[in-house]
Design a protein around this nucleic acid. Structure first.
Lengths: 182, 182
DNA sequence: ACCTGAACACCGTTCAAGT
DNA sequence: ACCTGAACACCGTTCAAGT
């Protein structure tokens, strides 16, 4: 795709839309409406749709910095024997603090066939693989644990947090116990 | 509330609506529309709303027989040392075979403060309590396991199944391992 | 090139009119 | 007493007109 210099005001508007979306989704979750985002961003609805063809695209863009944040944290855990446990706890914390994020994760999965598209997600998968591998070597993680398991568990935590279906820390505790070598 | 004999056609219509809803929700999941239910049931939309004030009420009514089915199965597990594991596996099977059911469970949780209202759900809670207690006595279940844990796990399975976020049998395996005595 | 916001489409829900 | 379905409300998305 040919990406030529966008006009200055277009870029500014795009940034404003993402910023408004971040704030609104984090506080109110997925029920935020597009006209609201436009109003808070100070642009017309059409502008929102120009930059993000669908609501889902906006939700994902608003969640992107959270993934970057999580990736950063995960990198700091490489080499830690309890890295996987700490990683999942951190994911839980972030999800619990940003109501829009779990909606984003879920919705992204609904649409895409095989989910993690985007630079950040690919890198994240790599780092999580290292955390799993290190845990196995250190004897803190079961030999049959996979990166897919970790994704699925993050999805489960996300669902429990989003629907308020219970104490996510308790679920994490159970799951981590299940992932430890017998 | 005063419940006086409803008219015969009203009762017949109600049954038709539930029957149509069961079939449609099970096959197409939560995206089924109210006018579709009305059409398949052979009644007007207004009639659907007369019997079920809100879409959610209809979804729950359509899911009721599944809960009854699960309760029945759970009763047969009382006294089985692996009752809890078998119970959760069965819940997974049912959820995987009825796309509307997990939507129902999730949505019910969204609305109600403390979820399990209705006769069946109360009885179910009782039986699950017995399964947990028996497992502890038999040494197949951790001492700190609670009925809430079991509900939360069912919720997690439901979410994974509904969003196609992974292999629910694998999640079940991990969680059961986590609930076994160390 | 990009922006705006009125208009459209879709679907849950209501209610005036019928039997 | 209950049923019907046209009409309303709401919200995601589009597009004709503007700059």
């Amino acid at each position: 795709l040919s990406t030529r210099k966008p006009r200055a005001d277009a870029e500014r508007n795009r940034a404003r839309v993402v910023e408004a979306a971040r704030a609104l989704f984090a506080e109110h979750g997925a029920e935020v409406q597009m006209p609201d985002v436009a109003r808070v961003a100070g642009v017309g609805v059409g502008t929102v749709y120009r930059h993000f063809p669908t609501r889902q695209d906006l939700v994902e863009a608003a969640a992107e910095h959270r993934f970057a944040e999580i990736l950063e944290y995960a990198r700091g855990l490489v080499g830690d024997d309890d890295g996987l446990a700490k990683y999942l706890r951190h994911v839980g914390e972030v999800l619990a603090s940003d109501r829009g994020l779990s909606a984003s994760i879920e919705a992204a999965r609904q649409s895409a066939g095989s989910e993690p598209r985007g630079e950040t997600r690919t890198l994240l998968e790599e780092v999580v693989g290292q955390l799993v591998a290190h845990g196995k070597a250190a004897g803190t993680v079961r030999k049959d644990c996979t990166v897919s398991d970790v994704y699925m568990i993050a999805g489960a935590l996300s669902a429990i947090i989003r629907t308020n279906a219970g104490d996510w820390r308790r679920l994490l505790q159970i799951v981590l116990s299940g992932l430890s070598p017998s």
